[in-house]
Write a protein that binds this DNA or RNA. Structure first.
Lengths: 230, 230
DNA sequence: CCTCCTCTGGAATGACGTTCCAATGCTCGA
DNA sequence: TCGAGCATTGGAACGTCATTCCAGAGGAGG
């Protein structure tokens, strides 16, 4: 135990890294709303001023925490799996999906700024796979960002449902309730929504993510083929 | 002018509708962070208690404001345009994109809950167009929600960049700064990102949205064709 | 040993969302 | 026409939070 009371320099030095890691822990435990400087300083056994010496403000802290999570996901993935570019794209996307699903607060922040180091690493991975296809280079930017956006935002959507309200209701509970609302609509005004209400209650988030991703990848393949024909 | 001072019932009655409309105004003017009950009660010439009589809390208010915006966008679109289902899908998506682009705060909330009345209206429109294609009914739910999610989340991304910091920097300024950061990376570690850095500065959000949407629609057409072959 | 400079802890501040409550006038039955 | 009850209002009060401020403590370098 380091000297406990005196207003002195600590041996277990504070640092950006330490603060961010503690923030990730608290975000995982309590969600974005539950991350407060009170909790953070308690866990770090320090005061607000010390934390503010290392990070500019709460926004920046959350941003760095989200980037930290993406970095961990990419690091855990390092050995490139086998298969063609499309299969590896799917594997990459699913790995990131699973990570963001575990850290429900992170997804909305991943693409908030384009210059977070690990977000750029993720985009680099996507782009590297894209470069293996015969998609014209002029479209690489658009397609890569479309995939990145789809990935992060669908996850944000799924995770938001999971952690919307703290305890009491499960993800399934929310879905069932929403599905009942859909089913109760007037079928003449809402023929489509009433028809698919059951699908909402039954669907699996991860599987649906994959279906949408396949839609994107099929579109990509179709565009490559069309380009090649003409 | 109604009686100005006495703590009395007003002739220009408060109502959910009035409160939500005022909230939309303030959100447009000051963004989500700038919407406070102080500003709201000042504009409505009332007190906090009166507002809380009509809405449960700030979260619900923002949700209703976002739904209000979607409702306005759908209403302005009512006459169905010509063309096949795919063309009309594009027109619908672009109209909603433009509306959400004008109300930068709204997009993240549109799909936060599946039971907002006008969100369901939007899904109904998408589904109606989907039903005209030969996509098997079993996939309608997944594809429709994939399109809805793409629509709202790309808009959220674009709008976030526009209104991230209040004044001082334009959308172009942010993009240019981000592009410079990309270009400054080590090309050996980030061959892809450095190569497309110029595209980031040059790209048009709306056009890119359309490209991604076309990717989805091409994928849809390819899947329909494949289904029909087998 | 003295002097910056880095880093720390906690007190103080101001803004905000939300709750509470006394007061008011409309509505409706008598 | 009158009174009771109820929907509605305005604002004061409260607790929480992010952020700022500051007085100091150690280490590094002269």
């Amino acid at each position: 135990m380091p000297p406990p009371k005196s207003r002195t320099r600590r041996t277990d030095a504070l640092s950006r890294e330490v603060v961010v890691r503690a923030a990730v822990e608290l975000l995982d435990e309590h969600g974005e709303r539950g991350l407060t400087f009170k909790l953070l300083t308690e866990r770090l056994q320090t005061g607000a001023g010390a934390v503010y010496w290392h990070v500019a403000n709460k926004d920046e802290l959350v941003l760095m925490a989200a980037d930290h999570v993406i970095g961990a996901a990419l690091a855990a993935l390092s050995p490139e799996p086998d298969g063609d570019a499309e299969a590896r794209m799917r594997a990459l996307a699913l790995a990131v999906y699973d990570t963001l699903d575990q850290h429900g607060w992170a997804a909305p922040h991943v693409i908030a700024v384009h210059t977070m180091p690990h977000t750029m690493g993720l985009l680099e991975r996507i782009g590297g796979l894209l470069a293996e296809t015969r998609l014209p280079a002029g479209r690489h930017f658009t397609v890569a960002t479309a995939i990145l956006i789809y990935l992060t935002s669908v996850t944000a959507q799924d995770a938001g449902r999971a952690s919307a309200v703290e305890p009491g209701v499960s993800r399934d509970g929310v879905l069932e309730h929403e599905a009942r609302q859909w089913a109760a609509l007037d079928p003449r005004a809402f023929p489509f929504v009433t028809r698919i209400a059951a699908d909402l209650a039954r669907h699996d988030d991860r599987e649906q993510f994959l279906t949408g991703l396949n839609l994107l990848l099929d579109g990509l393949r179709a565009q490559v083929a069309a380009e090649h024909d003409s």
